[in-house]
């Protein structure tokens, strides 16, 4: 589902965020991305969501080569990748319903469909009944869950999350993780960037370690030999 082949990313200010990253995440897998701040985790996620294009190498997401996608096709591409942020990036002046509905509205879904799907997504994150509340009226954990509901409302095949538990206490964090596991069980490919090594170990899932813009470790992966062979 997600394949990086010898990817390098240098930002316009000259900083090299990724040196040479190759990795492969098959459809339906849930993977953690760990490493220190500034190691390049966020850049990996930005390349997947096509917020950035690779300087060298190839990024394939759902069969699309992000480096070569025409600008006018970017919106359609982004609808297939759900993104969860640490700061959730909700629109403060819109109620929960409108926030969650945004991906469906931009895709031009029918009103009935929007209503149904938003409720389903809110139900999945346990916030059914909060539709008319403003984000500021919710707790931090609830806000994060609204962000997740927005990311999954259009049922994208790929979900990426940047430090989704960074602002949450351990109990809320483990709740959010449980939510991701459930989504993964229904077939969503998930990549979670996190500092929370405890959470990663506890899950027993595959962990890709990024250090200084390179893959420094890939544990629990069945496809590791393939990547080694590609190098």
């Amino acid at each position: 589902m997600i394949t990086f082949s010898a990817v390098a990313k240098r930002y316009r200010n000259g900083r090299e965020a990724l040196g040479n990253v190759s990795l492969h995440i098959p459809p339906g897998e849930m993977v953690f991305l760990t490493g220190r701040s500034g190691a390049g985790k966020s850049t990996v996620l930005k390349l997947i969501a096509l917020l950035e294009r690779p300087t060298r190498g190839q990024v394939l997401v759902g069969g699309e080569n992000t480096g070569k996608l025409a600008a006018r096709r970017i919106p359609a591409f982004r609808r297939k990748v759900g993104v969860v942020f640490q700061d959730h990036r909700l629109l403060a002046d819109r109620p929960v319903f409108d926030n969650v509905a945004l991906p469906l509205i931009v895709a031009g879904s029918a009103l009935k469909e929007i209503d149904k799907r938003v409720r389903a997504a809110l139900d999945q994150v346990g916030l059914l009944g909060s539709e008319r509340q403003l984000p500021a009226e919710l707790s931090v954990g609830e806000q994060q869950r609204v962000g997740i509901a927005r990311a999954i409302v259009s049922r994208p095949p790929v979900l990426i999350a940047d430090e989704p538990t960074g602002n949450l206490d351990p109990q809320l964090a483990s709740e959010v993780m449980g939510l991701f596991r459930r989504l993964n069980e229904v077939g969503v490919t998930i990549l979670v960037a996190t500092h929370d090594l405890h959470l990663v170990r506890e899950s027993g899932l595959r962990e890709i370690v990024i250090e200084n813009g390179r893959v420094a470790g890939d544990e629990g992966s069945l496809v590791l030999p393939i990547i080694e062979a590609r190098r």
């Binding site: 006018r72 919106p75 359609a76 982004r78 990036r89 945004l102 931009v106």
Partner: peptide, 10 residues
């Protein structure tokens, strides 16, 4: 605008 573009707004 950023969020709208992020979720696939043209």
């Amino acid at each position: 605008i950023e969020v709208t573009k992020l979720v696939g707004g043209t």
